[in-house]
Amino acid sequence: MNLKEFCLQIRKDIIQEIGTFGVGHIGGSLSIVEILAVLYNNYMNFDPNDPKKEGRDRLIVSKGHAGPAVYAVLANLGFFDKSWLLTLNKPGTNLPSHCDMNKTPGIDMTTGSLGQGFSCAVGIALGSKLKHDNAKIYTIIGDGESQEGQIWEASMFASHNRLDNLIAFLDYNGAQIDGEIIDVCSILPASDKWRTFGWHVIEVRNGNSCEEIDDALRLAQILENKPCMIVANTTKGFGIPFVEKAGVNNHSMNISKEQLEMALDELNKQER
């Protein structure tokens, strides 16, 4: 399966997970599919049969509401059986709305209370430096999440301590629950903020392009002395037209059975 096919499969699984349950965080799950696909397929060192293996690379999805996207990737990589995906948010599930390290194999940190996962990632990167295990620590934060003060506390600490084993993504999809980021409380100019806070910054014009994400990650591997922020301009709901069209209303959406079927048909057509 090439990356494009992998992303299509992940999108099918995301809509299946959320469509089966009937509601969920679809927009911000779809926006990070390419980031996850390139990370897991081209960069991260992991073992689905030993999810807690020492020295593995880690991914902390600080925007924990994108759990459905992460679960789809982990299931496709063999961390757990794909049938689990249909249990999303159902009572007793191992796949809760927000990422939970104690429930889901392959989840490296419990996240969902925004801002905290990013600090945890900084702590993990610090731990890796202390152990000299050469692991890479990846994290994804949201643009709305960047309104949390804790993000900036952590960013200062990471650059102060030269955590160059930390590579972060800002999923800049431009929308949050109550509307466009620029209308609610703008975080612009985002890249300048990160530079000013002492980070390397790589801007990705189209964060839903595997090639552009791959180029950014290749460059990030060789940057030294500072942590690296990849500002990825993504589209919330990318790849499933009716979700994308819902715009700022797609953060968490009801998905009917008809919409699920329609989305799967469209994704199947794209596959052909």
């Binding site: 390290m101 945890c120 990632a121």
Partner: peptide
């Protein structure tokens, strides 16, 4: 939260 990250490591 940094402490939590270190603990997880």
């Amino acid at each position: 939260s940094i402490a939590a990250g270190l603990s997880s490591y």
